[in-house]
């Protein structure tokens, strides 16, 4: 992990999308007046004919993307996670998921790491909303390398995908050679004292916690859950069997997100206690993203405390 090189996953998305646009003329991109923030502006500048700004009208954007996809196009629709999944939920459900159309909803500004804009813009329920939709696949990536892989990977899936992206620049965790597999969690380390299942912006915090704990002789493993639906049952059961403690962490409500998805697997397959770290059924608030992560204890320090807790 390179602590000095920080990139926001929204940036990686924008760059990769523009790169894919060269090879694949079927990629059509939509945004709702936030292209500079979601970074679809990079694609827009390169391919103005295949970029459609829909104005501040997220519901229209999602259904229009659905219509375009019926012509064999891969429609990408981007805006903030709040408005993409909250404002346009019915459109995602009925225009996109019910007919299983090839629409990729790539939403930035998820979680409290939106920062200063505060609660109205900090989407904490999106994974829960998207996970419940038949035909929908859900991804939440943790760094630049993984995001670029994911953006290409989802173009190979014929059907709806939700990709959750972040505003906050976070460390580059992986090197170019790292292999990822859709639907498979990536295990980092093989410590048996605890497993930390993490997704998105907090994976780097989990890795930091792992490194700190090693110094005091506590060996944990981190599982980067970039795919939340379908959830990787195998790795959850394996870690439940092999490690003494299970923790999940996400910049999302503890209701409906990664922690819930893991709980569902555990309760049916291998009943084990899971400590869910996330936003505990409250709205976010204004502040610097890093301050907010500290406030909600979504940091390496917060994880270490949970691991050390008896």
């Amino acid at each position: 992990m390179n602590e000095n090189k920080k990139i926001a996953t929204r940036q990686s998305y924008g760059e990769k999308l523009a790169e894919l646009g060269e090879k694949n003329e079927n990629i059509i991109v939509f945004d709702s007046d936030l292209s500079e923030a979601t970074k679809t502006s990079i694609f827009a500048k390169k391919f103005p004919n295949r970029f459609f700004d829909m104005g501040i009208a997220e519901q229209d954007m999602i259904s229009t993307a659905a219509g375009v996809s019926t012509f064999g196009k891969i429609a990408f629709a981007s805006t903030f996670a709040m408005f993409a999944t909250g404002r346009a939920y019915d459109q995602i459900r009925n225009s996109v998921c019910y007919p299983n159309l090839n629409v990729k909803i790539c939403a930035s500004h998820s979680g409290v790491t939106v920062g200063e804009d505060g609660a109205t813009h900090q989407m904490l329920e999106d994974i829960g909303l998207m996970r419940g939709l038949p035909n929908m696949k859900v991804m939440c990536t943790s760094d630049d390398i993984q995001t670029k892989w994911a953006v290409e990977e989802i173009t190979k899936i014929n059907g709806p995908v939700y990709l959750r992206l972040c505003r906050l620049a976070t460390p580059v965790i992986y090197d170019e050679k790292q292999k990822f597999e859709f639907g498979k969690g990536l295990q980092i380390g093989d410590g048996t004292d605890a497993t930390i299942f993490a997704t998105g912006v907090v994976v780097s915090e989990a890795i930091k916690a792992k490194e700190e704990l090693e110094k005091v002789g506590i060996n944990v493993r981190v599982v980067d859950m970039h795919t939340i639906k379908p959830i990787d049952k195998e790795i959850i059961i394996k870690c439940a069997k092999e490690t003494k403690k299970l923790i999940s962490i996400e910049d999302h409500s503890i209701i409906g997100g990664l922690g819930t998805a893991i709980s569902e697997v555990l309760v049916e397959e291998y009943p084990t206690k899971l400590i869910r770290m996330g936003i505990n059924d409250v709205f976010g608030k204004s502040g610097k993203a890093t301050e907010l992560l500290e406030f909600y204890k979504l940091t390496a320090k917060g994880i270490i405390e949970k691991v050390m807790d008896e």
Binding site: D60, G67, N94
Partner: peptide, 20 residues
Amino acid sequence: DCSTGSLGQGLSIANGMAIA
């Protein structure tokens, strides 16, 4: 050509088809 039912979405979908 299009799954509908939840009112108000069809014109956007039709726009998408016309754009494509």
